[in-house]
């Protein structure tokens, strides 16, 4: 036992003192991952950033730095977290997290997914709600600076849509104008559907089997 103990101690010391010399020079992804998760899949109110459009991530980080994205959780967490990130690092972090594989959150209501899918693909013509697919791409994977929505958590998407209606993030046009025509039930349905979209598979938009 005593030998074993000293070896455990020695191992702890060696590992603790010998190899930490990597991280400093590398991209400091663990400044992000302690909230967004080891591979950026999101955690609680932190959205999934894995597989997000790189230009979108850059724009958001710049919006936090410039205090333009102003919803409460952004103010509380991201304004502080992003305050001192240099433009080069913004670019590099966006490149890193956009390259990770996105996993669907799968946390919406399966019953509502079909209705959500319909809104996503067709919009609500009678109320002037444009189909999401027009901008966010056929598989909800986003395009250029327009974000990927596929697989984002139900609560995150729902919160964003609600917050546009509450007056936050008004700079993110045209979303404030789009979101105001959605009823609470439609927001639920849309957020549920998107949480099941698995952009890793060719049938990304396949609604889940109940």
């Amino acid at each position: 036992m005593n030998r074993f103990g000293s070896k455990i101690m020695a191992l702890a010391i060696l590992l603790g003192s010998a190899s930490p010399l990597l991280a400093e020079e590398e991209l400091q992804i663990r400044n992000c991952t302690f909230c967004h998760g080891v591979s950026g899949q999101g955690f609680m109110v932190s959205p999934r950033i894995a597989g997000q459009r790189p230009q979108y991530i850059e724009n958001q980080l710049n919006a936090f730095i410039g205090h333009i994205r102003d919803n409460p959780y952004s103010k509380k967490y991201m304004w502080n977290a992003a305050a001192n990130v240099s433009p080069e690092r913004v670019h590099a972090l966006a490149g890193y997290f956009s390259s990770l594989e996105p996993r669907p959150a799968n946390d919406g209501s399966q019953e509502l997914a079909a209705a959500g899918r319909q809104i996503f693909e067709e919009g609500i013509p009678t109320r002037n709600v444009v189909a999401c697919i027009v901008c966010h791409a056929p598989n909800a994977e986003g395009v250029r600076q327009i974000p990927r929505l596929g697989g984002l958590s139900y609560l995150y998407v729902k919160r964003q849509l609600n917050q546009w209606n509450e007056g936050y993030r008004q700079a993110a046009q045209p979303m404030p104008r789009v979101a105001k025509f959605l009823s609470p039930d439609e927001i639920e349905a849309l957020a549920s559907f998107l949480s099941f979209v698995d952009n890793r598979s060719p049938q990304a938009l396949q609604a889940p089997q109940p």
Partner: peptide, 21 residues
């Protein structure tokens, strides 16, 4: 939960800067 993960990450995560709250 974020505090727990900061600790599990070994107190190394950084961020912030001159303009943060």
């Amino acid at each position: 939960p974020f505090g727990r993960r900061f600790k599990l990450n070994g107190y190394i995560s950084r961020g912030g800067g001159p303009d943060g709250a």
